[in-house]
Design a protein around this nucleic acid. Sequence first.
DNA 1: GAAAGATTTCGACGATCATCGAAATATTCA
DNA 2: TGAATATTTCGATGATCGTCGAAATCTTTC
Lengths: 93, 93
Amino acid sequence: MNRVFKALSDPTRREILRLLTMREMNAGELAERFDLTKPSVSHHFAVLKDADLVRSRRDGQQIIYSLNTTVVQDVLSRIWDMFGSPSKPGEGG
Amino acid sequence: MNRVFKALSDPTRREILRLLTMREMNAGELAERFDLTKPSVSHHFAVLKDADLVRSRRDGQQIIYSLNTTVVQDVLSRIWDMFGSPSKPGEGG
DNA sequence: GAAAGATTTCGACGATCATCGAAATATTCA
DNA sequence: TGAATATTTCGATGATCGTCGAAATCTTTC
């Protein structure tokens, strides 16, 4: 769970995730969207994969990235459970 | 929004937030729960306050921390909107 | 097999971050 | 006013992080 929060702590990676909610994209296509070198963007892919938030598959020369939908949903549920229903003081928590 | 994610990226701070969902606590009470010096824990309070996730008020010699419930709820909603309903490829997003 | 294209790995560098001990600030109580 | 308690601020330090250019890996095509 810590890797997930670390992964989400960088704006570039959050933007990658947001783009992938639209449709899957290959590495070069994603890299074009950022003012970063390809090695830098590739590093962000690795962090997101390590957190299990995205998946990748090869299609010819290209690597196609997609959102790991089930994990993202599960993670969001956990976060919600952790902070989403705080009992107010005096409400009996 | 970036400050929020940065704030959430540290396990100690997430634990502070989790504890505060139970009930409000003063600084010393919270600090006892961690194997950290008081200056370190105090630093985490500052980060959480800067992200507007917690509030503090003074009661005599003590500073009482509580979850900023409305902001936490709002933040979670935003995160959910950002990643919560990803359209699968071919589903027409 | 060699050239070309897409992507990642490597090694390094500067910035940011979590942590600490010491000192400073704020409040209470005698 | 001065001692005691609670908490934060300051200054420093080691670790982690995002970034880069160069080199390596993998695939396709000729």
